[in-house]
Design a protein around this nucleic acid. Structure first.
Lengths: 146, 146
DNA sequence: CAGGATCCCGCTAGATACTG
DNA sequence: CAGTATCTAGCGGGATCCTG
């Protein structure tokens, strides 16, 4: 039947579209930085510990596992390790283990990681410029529909 | 015991940190655009239907529900409606229902929405410039550890 | 100190069916 | 046409315990 074939075509179109999305660089980037901890780790290693104060200059520094863990108070070891691993895998930071006793591991941003960190600056700027406007709109909308 | 009190302090610190995160404008923005469909809807209404071709000029246009639904082949009605509603709530787009039979509803970006759409351009540029480098790093890393 | 391994729970996206 | 309502499975992420 034609209806069946049409349904198949639709499903195939959806599959292709989803495949396209998976391959899309912008999508991949968004999936990456949408991760709560990625940007925060970038900030930590990038040197600005107060994400709300954009003026603070860059002072990229290496940090140890426990330092990061202390700085990002909300993170679980699992997520921290997982995130660090994937960032290392992508060449955004380097992991250096020094065989002291006990072991010492430090993480540091690569140039690529630093460049991504700068990218997030742009996001912060937009957010600080427009986010309160969004919030106001939201409140007005909620008040209207109550 | 001191250990108990220390644990409490840690938990409180975590709670405060998480509250801080929830209030952070950058975080809110990221939560918003990390949504798969938000950016795609922005692209659709913003006029560039080929996210991989940054050269295409802006031609913001109003679109009907079914148009968007057809363009974003992978989306479910639920997610589409949900996303559109929240975008309207935030003042990023407008919803206009014309009481014809059957009803006609069209969506259009506001200036704010358009500005966010331009923001995503920056992301796309970074993605196109650096994402293949990331991918290469990833492959190398995987090859090394295999 | 810096993680690995497991269990488990909440939330959300998606499918399906119905409506003004 | 443009949604709403409901149900469910899957999985991301936290908590917990263990190790080199």
């Amino acid at each position: 039947m034609t209806t069946t074939k049409a349904a198949q075509k639709r499903d195939q179109a959806k599959a292709e579209y989803n495949a396209f999305l998976a391959a899309c660089p912008s999508r991949q980037l968004l999936d990456r930085i949408s991760d709560k901890w990625v940007v925060l780790i970038l900030c930590a290693l990038g040197g600005d510990n107060s994400p709300t104060q954009p003026g603070t200059a860059d002072a990229p520094k290496a940090m140890r596992y426990s330092e990061i863990s202390r700085l990002l108070a909300g993170v679980s070891q699992k997520m921290l390790t997982q995130t660090l691993r994937s960032l290392e895998r992508d060449g955004l930071l380097t992991r250096t283990a020094t065989p002291t006793v006990p072991v010492t591991v430090s993480y540091e941003l690569t140039d690529l990681g630093l460049s991504l960190h700068h990218m997030t600056r742009g996001l912060r700027n937009w957010a600080q410029t427009h986010m309160d406007e969004v919030l106001t709109n939201r409140e007005n909308h909620d008040a209207r529909t109550t």
